[in-house]
Write a protein that binds this DNA or RNA. Sequence first.
DNA 1: GAGCACTGC
Length: 692
Amino acid sequence: MAEFDLSANFIPSLHKPSSLLPIARHRQNLLYLIETYPVTIVVGQTGSGKTTQIPQYLEQAGWCSDGKVIAVTQPRRVAATTVAIRVAEEVGCKVGEEVGYSIRFEDVTSAATRIKFLTDGLLLREALVDPLLSRYSVIMVDEAHERSLSTDVLLGVLKKILKKRPNDLRIIISSATLQAEDFLRFFTGDTDLKSKPTDSDAMTLDDLITQASTGAGKSAVSGTIINLEGRMYPVDVLYSESSVEDYIEKAVQTVFDIHTKEPDGDILVFLTGREEIDTAVQAISERAANLHPRAQGLMALPLCAGLSTEQQMYVFEEAPENTRKVIFSTNIAEASVTIDGIVYVVDSGFVKLRAFNPLTGIETLTATPVSKASATQRAGRAGRTKPGKCYRLYTEASFQSLEETTVPEIQRSNLAPVILQLKALGIDNIVRFDFLTSPPAELIIRALELLYSLGALDDYAKLTKPLGTRMAELAVEPMMAKTLLSAPSFNCLSEILTIAAMTSLGGNIWVQPDGEKKSMESPRRKFAVEEGDQLTLLNVYQAFITKGKKEGRFCHDNYINFKAMTRAVSIRAQLKRYLERFGMKVEETLSSNANKQPLAVGGPDKAEQIRRCLTAGFFAHAAKMQPDGTFRNVAGGTILHAHPSSLMFNRKADWVIFHEVMETGNKTFIRDVTKIEKGWLVEYAAGYYKIQ
DNA sequence: GAGCACTGC
């Protein structure tokens, strides 16, 4: 699995003396523009030094006087920590002094911190406490072109804040060229803006100023775009001459073509998922055996989020003597992970994308053609260290027919958590909220309906007190938040806290050792609880707390992911602190039950209370088992399958609730499934099921 | 009897 602590190992080779970075010669321009304009869009490639240098320039120019802080947001935790470590090194301080970072569970900042790197999700949460983000003089939103859910929400919130702090707040957006003008237009409100990204080398300062004032006429906010650097090395793009039937096979052939005909350099192949990657890696290994014994060897390696950290590290190691490395990767290598030494990229043209269907409430995960922006980004991965080549396994005509950019997450996600968060920030009219791109109305309606049925919103779509405001504060999805807040009345808060923490891990609890599949089931069965997966998870956690933390072999012997369990402990502790702040008392029940047989849950009454409590939060995720072992949702239209990782995969049940539902391939799977009684649905969600 | 791209509070 791609854990949060993939650690500094990925980045250090980018380290350049800061005076040599191309950004250094733009220093005066940058400072002038940021001083003059409330909003500055910075266009620059990875490696241009924008993330590390701009905050330092600003600090040296006095933007941190009066105790103010410069914030730099990142979409990912690893980036926030590694960049902070590097900048602290350059500044010559320890991380947490002048330069610090803050991510969930790790606040490495102090009163002395002037430059603070943090995830955009965390900055949004800070806005709950400090709505104008008043401690920051400059907020830089890095990697904004990735358009993650929280980046988009943050941009909307920042636009609002800027109207209230027009003189003392500066916003910097770092973006790829393609989207720079969209960002500027969003903040300046000028739809007729015709400016092109500025190459500040070719322009005088006066030109820049003139350019920047374009569009200042109609709105209160003015802004500018500054271009820091072009492409690093040229990449030749080659297209397939005819359409490709089987891109895995074609990818394997292309790899061999490159290997036999092209000069040295490693190969990166983009496929969509683990199964494809395994197939391709195996095909290479088999056919590489047929290469001439004295020819250069070919070593195939997989890279995807499902692998353990150790398994992922192989792709960073240098290939053995006289061997070329070929990495088959998912989209993880497009932005999250950077591998040096790649000279050839092979692009299947597909990516698996998540989408939420507002009509059914079901998430889908489907292989989809990439966007032009994505294909360009993939090609760029070949030109990081020297000129490279990109082989697209589709025709040029197909490329021309691709969408310009990937549909941003905010237009294809379940918006219930976003809306809850916006409401908590005092933004009541969601439809009129200024999104960079508005989500479809159906998504908003579906989310409002769910929040209403959970009791987080009243008849006027206002946040309820205290239920709605508390749900917004908890760092779990709305249904789980409701479950947690209901737990005291079912007398099972301690257990639900554990279940909430365990389900937030999203299926990372078990490790799959290389090459072993069958042995997985029996250790897992050891923790099985008849009533379902949530109670089984509770059981695993309790066993971990009592045995696994001390005995090193416990996790290994039981195929349990130690790091995931450690994270569950942190999440649980954090949720517990929230609940205690709400005045709820958490009576820890663990110790009294730890030695009971069967394992788990303190007797039948307690188990039933837990299942009832889960029903109070997850009633919208209810289903009934059919004689053939599949499930139907309450409306009856959708066939649901228990996921093979679920206990209910091969057991009998009547009614169940589930934590998650997702459509992949042609099947819809439910995960984390627990048996309930039909009557409970009516008892805890009468309104919801009468409407249907 | 069969499997989830990637983030984040």
